[in-house]
C-alpha cells in the first residue's frame, strides 16, 4: 500500500509520519500519533466529536485526509492545557458540570475555542451557533452553553 509522508505541527510539536494514502486525519492522530482526544463518533461529519482546529479553523478530522494537512498547524484538546494548568474553557466545563459521559467534550471544547479565539465576548446565540455541529446526548446542551459563556467571562476578566 502506498505510504505518504505527512508533516504538520500538532499542539506546538512537529510531527512527521508515513500514512496510507487516503487515511483520515482522525485515524492518523489517534492510531499513528497517539493523540486520542479527537473521538470517532460517526465518521460521517454529523457529530463533531472529532473536531480539531486546522490553521485556525474548526474542521472535522474524520472527513479530512491526513495528506491534505501537510504543513498545517493543528490543535486538539489534548494540547490545550499549558503545563498542567487548565485552559479557561476546560476550567469552565469542570465548574459548570458540563461533562457527563465526556465523549463529546473534546470536540465541544475545540468548537468553543475557535469561537472565543475570534469572538472573545460571544452572545448566547453565537455560542449556540458555534456548538451547533457538535452532538451531545447527555447534557441537553444548556450546561455546555453556560460553560462557554463562563469561560468567555473569565477570559475578559483576566484581560481587564
Amino acid at each position: 500500500m502506498a505510504k505518504v509522508p505527512v508533516q504538520f505541527t500538532l499542539n506546538g510539536s512537529e510531527k512527521a509520519e508515513f500514512v496510507d494514502s487516503g487515511t483520515t486525519l482522525l485515524h492518523a492522530l489517534r492510531d499513528k500519533i497517539g493523540d486520542t482526544s479527537p473521538k470517532g463518533g460517526c465518521h460521517q461529519g454529523t457529530c463533531g466529536a472529532c473536531s480539531v482546529i486546522i490553521d485556525g479553523e474548526l474542521r472535522l478530522s474524520c472527513l479530512t485526509l491526513a495528506e491534505t494537512c501537510d504543513g498545517a498547524v493543528i490543535s486538539t484538546t489534548s494540547g490545550l492545557s499549558d503545563s498542567g494548568v487548565l485552559h479557561p474553557l476546560q476550567r469552565a466545563f469542570l465548574d459548570t458540570f458540563a461533562t457527563q459521559c465526556g465523549f463529546c467534550t473534546p470536540g465541544m471544547i475545540m468548537a468553543a475555542k475557535v469561537l472565543l479565539d475570534h469572538t472573545p465576548n460571544p452572545s448566547r446565540d453565537e455560542v449556540v451557533e458555534a456548538l451547533s455541529g457538535n452532538i451531545c446526548r447527555c447534557t441537553g446542551y444548556e450546561p455546555i452553553i453556560q460553560a462557554v459563556l463562563t469561560a468567555a467571562r473569565s477570559n475578559s476578566q483576566n484581560a481587564a
Binding site: D35, S37, T77, L86, Q90, F93, L94, F97, T99, F103
Partner: peptide
C-alpha cells in the same frame, strides 16, 4: 466536583 471530568476536558479519559 466529578472525579472523571478532568480526564474528559483534557481528552485523557480512555474510552
Amino acid at each position: 466536583p466529578r472525579s472523571d471530568s478532568p480526564g474528559h476536558v483534557t481528552g485523557k479519559t480512555a474510552f
